[in-house]
Amino acid sequence: MNERDDGVPDRDRHGGVPDHDVPSAWRQTAQRHYDPEEGTEFVTEIVAAIAAAREVGLHEVKSPPLYECIDAPALERTFFESPAHRFQYEDGAVEFRYAEFLVRVQNDGWITVFAAGEDAS
């Protein structure tokens, strides 16, 4: 892992999760970036990341309903309600299970989907 002059770890080559934070029993399968200023819905970005991981269309991600796995509106308010919220938590992240995936949402907007490897439980 590289560090910038200010001592803050760089993100990995994909712009998201630092290499040292990747769960060893999981492999990254999809990643999207949410920017509240772009006008896309937060929930849509999460579902789009899951759809990409499943290699299906956005509207094919139906089960389980996302709201059964995470309170996405509460997470959006916590991390993205205002520009000050985005940086309130240094390296803030929330992970949750969605069906066969582990989904990580970071306060910098990166949504990363991991698929279970042989060692995952």
Rank of each mutant, 00 (worst) to 15 (best):
Y67F: 15
E100W: 01
T112P: 04
I111Q: 00
E38N: 08
V61K: 05
E3I: 14
P9R: 14
D71A: 00
G39H: 09
A84Y: 11
E60H: 12
E45A: 05
D71F: 01
E41T: 03
Q106R: 14
F42G: 01
R54G: 01
D71G: 00
E3W: 14
D10Q: 15
P9H: 12
A52D: 10
P18R: 03
L66V: 03
G57T: 02
V103C: 12
Q88E: 07
H85W: 10
P64T: 03
Y34K: 01
F80G: 02
G39S: 10
D19V: 14
V8S: 13
D12N: 08
T40Y: 13
A99N: 04
Y89I: 09
A30P: 08
W26E: 00
F96P: 00
V94T: 09
V105P: 04
L66M: 01
D108M: 02
S121T: 10
W110G: 08
F80Q: 06
E68I: 01
R54S: 06
A53C: 04
V47C: 07
A99E: 10
A74W: 09
Y34T: 00
A116K: 15
L75Q: 00
L58N: 06
A51P: 04
D6M: 12
E90G: 13
E45C: 08
R27A: 10
W26P: 00
I111D: 02
D12C: 13
A74P: 01
I46R: 02
H33C: 15
T78Y: 06
A72K: 04
L102H: 08
D10I: 13
T29P: 05
H20Q: 10
P83W: 11
A120H: 01
R54I: 02
R4A: 08
T40C: 10
V43I: 11
H20N: 12
H59A: 13
H20R: 11
G7W: 07
R11E: 08
A116E: 11
V43D: 11
E3A: 15
H85F: 11
E3D: 15
E95T: 02
A72S: 14
F101L: 07
R86W: 12
P73D: 03
W26A: 01
D10Y: 15
E95G: 00
H20W: 09
V61Y: 03
P9I: 04
V47I: 15
A116P: 13
F96D: 06
R104H: 07
N107F: 11
P83L: 10
F114C: 03
L66S: 01
Y98L: 04
